[in-house]
Design a protein around this nucleic acid. Sequence first.
DNA 1: TAATATGTATACCACTCGGTACATAAAAAG
DNA 2: CTTTTTATGTACCGAGTGGTATACATATTA
Lengths: 188, 188
Amino acid sequence: MDNRQKILAKAEELFAAQGYNAVGVQELAQAADVTKPTLYHYYGSKLGLLQAVLEDGFLPLLQQTREAAQYQGDLPLTLYRLANAYFAFSKARPGFYRLQLSLWFSPPESEDFDAVRPWGHRQQEMLEALFQAAVRDHGNMKGRHRRYAATFLGMLNTLISLGLNNLLELNDELVFNAVHQFMHGIYS
Amino acid sequence: MDNRQKILAKAEELFAAQGYNAVGVQELAQAADVTKPTLYHYYGSKLGLLQAVLEDGFLPLLQQTREAAQYQGDLPLTLYRLANAYFAFSKARPGFYRLQLSLWFSPPESEDFDAVRPWGHRQQEMLEALFQAAVRDHGNMKGRHRRYAATFLGMLNTLISLGLNNLLELNDELVFNAVHQFMHGIYS
DNA sequence: TAATATGTATACCACTCGGTACATAAAAAG
DNA sequence: CTTTTTATGTACCGAGTGGTATACATATTA
């Protein structure tokens, strides 16, 4: 593994464990067994490193969830696949998912939040497009696709953060129940 | 308003807007129109100030929600009152609620998280006691009170954070729908 | 009026922060 | 074999960090 990747991996690990602001560049370079100018050579700044970490995690997440979010006439099935994709990703890369969640809830005026904002929008857009497409078959959803997208992702993140803290097992039964409960909220 | 309160109010405001780590003690004292030793005179340390801010917010929150969480045989009604209490509080003190949420999602090894942890537990205990009490009338809930407490609070926080960002209006209809949906998840 | 807390200000501490100027090493290209 | 690009190390920067020693002012109490 070259220095570039070593830095990226350690950054994801330390940012997830201690938070972006709490980790110093010096500490980071030391943990990656590299000197500070080397780090700056590759990533330009601490914020640049954070952005690289986010891109490294969000690109595969978005790719995998986009595939699952293709609507083909069966909304519960699509949501089921989507929830599974999210759960699988959070299990495969728990550190990144933790980091991403904590950034998402960080204060709206901070530079950390600015770094996740665009990725949050891309997720939101993907989900909105899904619920928009489903309006054809579920007329009563009309005009609510934005709200559905936000609450669905919120529900998933609630469950995932419980899963990350071992308070819940993210198994098939849970996925089924969660989607069922969410669909019930749409029908009624 | 005396200096003590001025410091506390500014701290809540700045911590909520920029994050605990991103705000310096110097900056804080300046914003409260006070010198640094004055701040240390009252609160001892930056962490001590954060703890005071949390106590100042969580004590009334817990008091108001505890009253709403008294189970008297009607679970949907209790959850309805509880959700209303949470929503009302988040509207009354949006800055504090934001801060509390962001701390709750900050990395588990950070000192910020240590500061909210006990308050999170007290909320969790209150909700567990409620669902525990409701087991008498809802046998199928048995053994799941921990999960119900966590997911119910998670749902409320999802909605509240959408409300704080003006993506959702936290009105009576929403409370009704949310509780209804949650109860459906219990029955089925 | 004297003694005692309480509150506030000046000036400083050692340390860490993110970031960089500059020299050198290694490798690729001519 | 030289030149140029890419990569890494040494040593440093000014600014800001959380925190404090100490003196001074203002009340309260004896």
